[in-house]
Amino acid sequence: MTQFFQRLGHSTLSSFAKLGRGSFFLMQILKATLSVIPRPRLLINQLYSVGVLSFLIISISGLFVGMVLGLQGFYILSDFGAEETLGMMVAASLVRELGPVVAALLFAGRAGSALTAEIGLMKATEQLSGMEMMAIDPIKRIIAPRLLAGFISMPLLAALFSAIGVLGGHMVGVGLLGVDDGSYWSQMQAGIDFQDDIINGIIKSIIFGFAVSWIALFEGYDAIPTSEGVSRATTRTVVNSAFTILGLDFILTALMFGDI
């Protein structure tokens, strides 16, 4: 019994310590972010590996999610004779929830894990230490451009996911199942509010992008510099990112759409 409490206490303390290290790390990055601006080359390289390399998986997933929504939505709505509102249903689900959340989950799996592995390996092979000894701050040179790239890429990827999803829903709903093309779009435009739905969705994805990049970079930076330590850190990135995204999503949804 004592042992249980001892273990509980230990893990509580160590997770607080980790949270503290993570926050300190974030502060260091934020201070270093300005130094990226005069050096766009660093940012462009990271936009490539964070954004461009996630582009394909996000587009394809968006297409399929949209098609499935079109199919399922059609069967449910046709029970109520409301197939005409399919466009609105597909777009609302994508823009409000699925776009930001699923894109962020995919982003964590694709880009987040790669970031952790990269930073962890740089630590394991003494590259970070080596830069410090060359009087080059690795936070400025390595970490900050990556956080910024995640921050910029995520809303763009989420928008792509939603837009392609809406087209996928159109393909199935209008193309295959015969929903009227005009009412697909007009119901959508009548039901989706720019401010409440689109802007809030974008805000969500910005927050998710920031959170995932932070988690991924911190896990890499904090990893035990061995191959086992790095592989564990990579797993932790994906798991912790998923929890964080879903938890944040609930909080943000409650704040934005609910009257809480």
Partner: peptide, 19 residues
Amino acid sequence: LYTLRKRMGMLFQSGALLT
């Protein structure tokens, strides 16, 4: 400290080249 480090070179065991 960073100014001082510019005048200290260090050769790591692995080389620590940026890959």
